[in-house]
Design a binder for these strands. Sequence first.
DNA 1: AACATTCTAACACAATTGTATTAAAAAGAA
DNA 2: TTCTTTTTAATACAATTGTGTTAGAATGTT
Lengths: 199, 199
Amino acid sequence: MPKIVDHEQQKIKVAEAAWRVIRRSGIENASVRNVAQEAGISPGSMRHYFSTQAELFSFSMSLVSERVATRIAALDYDRPMPEVARDVLHELVPLSEEGRAEMEVWLAFVSKSLSEPSLHGHAQKVYDQLRSAMLLVVRGLIQYGSASKKLNLEQEAERMHVFVDGIALHGLTYPDRMPPDRMEKLLDEYLDSLCQKQS
Amino acid sequence: MPKIVDHEQQKIKVAEAAWRVIRRSGIENASVRNVAQEAGISPGSMRHYFSTQAELFSFSMSLVSERVATRIAALDYDRPMPEVARDVLHELVPLSEEGRAEMEVWLAFVSKSLSEPSLHGHAQKVYDQLRSAMLLVVRGLIQYGSASKKLNLEQEAERMHVFVDGIALHGLTYPDRMPPDRMEKLLDEYLDSLCQKQS
DNA sequence: AACATTCTAACACAATTGTATTAAAAAGAA
DNA sequence: TTCTTTTTAATACAATTGTGTTAGAATGTT
């Protein structure tokens, strides 16, 4: 039968090329041709994986959230909850170069989703997943006994969500003012304050 | 002499047209022609005010921050500090339709500034101005006596900055999950907690 | 009313865009 | 080796892009 190329693998390769173009030149320069060139294939060939630019964007956006979700799922949860919480939050903030790349691209897509209905659904889905993750973290801290049982779960999760995304945004857009060690410090102090509220 | 048109006023008119295009169709569709049409003038005529698209973007971005700054400066500061603080933070979050419009555009520009060096300087300048505003608020709350004198000024201002921008980001990108009344509640509770820390 | 100066509008240009079509190349199964 | 099917590459197309140029309209002063 035919030449067998891992179709999915190829799509990932192209999507990652799209990421690089978006980081380097902005999403408005992520044209079919530019992305294809970055991926090292011909534009006509790329159309075989993504018949439209919208598909490419949708897939590329999903791949970002999938990567982050995979990394979080791969964490070691067999540890004291405060440590786990710390690691989870660290994955949601651009501490490493890899995380930074993903989040720069993510911000570009979220920003585009404001005027691009086809991307809006995914942005919302990830938002809800993140909120669930925050809920798990807060609940875990309480059950573990390090945070007060009187905390309002949803309220505390919402605050955590807002705070973490605020840090991520600052880390992305003002890396000089908000370098990785500063983000870490803010997160650690935040978790400490959460755990030291009187039970 | 010549036909006298308020040059500055005209530039503002064009910039506001650019905002509308950006909100409606994204910054990648804010072409010279589209913006000119939205402004009700001819493209060639627009080039008289902005000889290049980069100039238009730079001016439009600055106009956003200027508007917000003006509104904050126009607040009544002759009141108890907690009230003033509340009003200041409320201006930094998309509570009204006008505020929402400005911040959607602002996010588009900040996102673009990641890959557009010509916009990056302004984003950074506004960041520093915001941080100063946060410092003023925190200092004010402490001097007024509603917040503890033991608070670390810079640290508390940084937290406030992160928290407020997180709320703004959520309000922008997920207005269903984070409607205005929820933002207000988060801000109010945050200020309350700040003021109730033991002195 | 005539003039000087600014603004306007239309067109031109090469470059790039998304999408489509089509013929050649590649590669595993027979 | 031969064949079947997928992947590739090249080209085409109309539309849109940013930026220039240029001739004409508008307007307030003299």
